[in-house]
Design a protein around this nucleic acid. Structure first.
Length: 477
RNA sequence: UGGGAGAUCGGCUAAUGGUAGGCCGGCAGGCUCUGGACCUGCUAGUGGGGGUUCGAAUCCCUCUCUCCCAGCCA
């Protein structure tokens, strides 16, 4: 309920429980028995199943089907009173054991369950089945339309039958296709399995399509609602590309998320012509899409970190970022030229660079241009953070639809990557759990509730669209 | 093989007898202190066959394919 509210819905004082209608439902059952439309059956569950027939062959009548109204009334009353054990008797609708729709072959209405109910306690030991209760709740609440998913289409004739036989207010049941996402499972049963067997960290694991999971991942209510609007509602069984959801998330977050700088895979940079101990506060725009978001100060100093992937010693043609001898812009700071590369065992461990003091703020007075702008953080001011990167939970588009295969076979072993040596600008430390923001050039992120005074934990919601990654793929081909 | 439901660009979705449109993706270009965002253009579809009609995605017939149903689950 909390999740639904977070999504932006409010049912005001209209929170209803089926169990509030148990008395009324029982009265309705008595009414059907009196009309000769329901009977108490002594058959066991297995026997009922055997008597039901199959999809292509009709069922047989139960030997108890023709009990008198008086006997049925008496038996039902004694079921309610608790005179029988679980499974000993059921109340069934008397419809047609040869009906082509299996749901119409004398469906069970009440079964005996000696169990406490979370709202009615021990008042009842017989409980209505879904098919029996569903239409009654809708009718009692006088709703106009009852929406449900496609698999209940076969149940609509029964929904209609109960209401018509009772002669009560008759809402209309309308079915629609459930939402499916690529590389995901959506069924409660499967999600429960993932949670309970520890394949994910809980119902709010950011890899799950649960509302609390998406919230923890950093998806906004607006994004989720826009997504739902965009995909529409229909009766066609379809699978929506996960990428469309991500698109909607980016679309909203681009407009609303404040920007920060953070380095996921740090590479140390020393600015040789920048004095030791000097610190400058560079002015940065919080959100270029929203001038009202204002600006902030970001400290710049002699020792910085940049992203490892923003430097290449031997850059290919279309690589615009930092390389030996090349000048790029450090966002909101200076034009920086790489003068030297320090390596240990063939691995680049540090860059020596120089700044052009004339370019403070990020523009050259002589009008010269650079091919790219990269992000950075000041080494001495940086805050350490753990960043969790999420990838698709499954390796195939439709893990639930692989006939004869367990969906868990397709779990992506790399759906979670934890980075522990990330360096982020100091202002990020002021954010609260669930706050959403962008690390410039990297993607959208949010503060994970695992964050404590000692530990900053950040979830990556979704990457920015990455044109460079696309070019790289092309180059490989 | 009984019953129910469905089929429109690569994906999703509009058009209910009158110009097959939108979004996402993809491709090409523009712009840019985020290779982001934004802007422009292009791409591409009515499952097959027959019929009714001046005119069919839409109505009729037929075929094909897909999904759901044999819980005292929901």
């Amino acid at each position: 309920m909390e999740d639904v509210k977070w999504l932006g819905f409010d049912w005001e004082d209209r929170l209803f429980f089926a169990s509030d209608y148990f008395d009324q439902m029982y009265e309705y059952a008595v009414q059907l028995v009196k009309a000769g439309k329901a009977y108490v059956d002594d058959l066991s569950a297995e026997e009922i199943s055997a008597y039901r027939g199959t999809l292509t062959t009709p069922g047989r009548n139960s030997p108890y089907r023709d009990r008198s109204v008086e006997e049925n009334l008496d038996l039902l009353e004694r079921m309610r009173k608790g005179e029988f054990a679980n499974g000993e008797k059921v109340l069934r609708a008397k419809i047609d054991m040869a009906h082509p729709n299996m749901n119409m072959r004398d469906p069970v209405m009440y079964r005996i369950l000696h169990a406490a109910h979370h709202r009615t306690g021990n008042k009842w030991c017989i409980y209505p089945t879904y098919d029996w209760a569903h239409g009654l709740e809708d009718s009692i609440e006088r709703i106009t339309h009852s929406l449900c998913t496609l698999e209940f289409e076969n149940h609509r004739p029964l929904y209609d039958w109960f209401l018509d036989e009772l002669g009560v207010y008759h809402p209309q049941q309308i079915e629609f296709a459930r939402l499916n996402l690529t590389y995901m499972v959506m069924s409660k049963r499967m999600l429960k399995e993932l949670v309970e067997e520890g394949y994910v960290r809980g119902w709010d694991d950011p890899r799950l399509p649960t509302i609390c999971g998406m919230r923890r991942r950093g998806y906004s209510p607006t994004a989720i609602r826009n997504f739902c609007k965009r995909i529409g509602v229909s009766k066609v069984n379809s699978i929506i590309p996960f990428e469309l959801l991500e698109h909607c998330v980016r679309e909203d977050l681009n407009k609303t998320a404040p920007r920060f700088m953070g380095v996921l895979h740090p590479l140390k940079v020393v600015i040789e012509n920048y004095p030791e101990g000097k610190v400058e506060e560079m002015e940065a725009i919080n959100n270029p899409e929203d001038p009202a978001a204002g600006t902030r100060k970001v400290p710049f100093s002699r020792e910085l970190y940049i992203e490892q992937s923003d430097f290449m010693e031997n850059p290919p043609k279309k690589f615009y970022r930092l390389a030996p001898g090349r000048e790029v812009r450090f966002r909101y700071a200076y034009f920086v030229t790489c003068t030297d590369v320090i390596k240990e065992n063939d691995e680049v461990v540090e860059l020596r660079c120089t700044v052009d003091p004339e370019t403070r703020g990020g523009d050259a007075p002589d009008g010269r241009k650079v091919k790219s702008t990269i992000h950075w953080v000041s080494a001495s001011h940086a805050v350490d953070a753990e960043v969790r990167l999420y990838d698709k939970l499954f390796t195939v588009e439709d893990p639930a639809g692989r006939k004869g295969r367990d969906f868990k076979e397709f779990l992506n072993p790399n759906s979670l990557t934890t980075l522990t040596s990330c360096k982020v600008e100091p202002a990020v430390r002021n954010l609260k759990p669930f706050d959403r923001f962008q690390f410039e050039r990297l993607g959208y992120f949010c503060i994970d509730p695992d964050t404590t005074a000692e530990r900053l934990v950040i979830n990556r919601t979704v990457e920015l669209r990455d044109t460079w990654a696309k070019i790289q793929k092309k180059l490989k081909r």
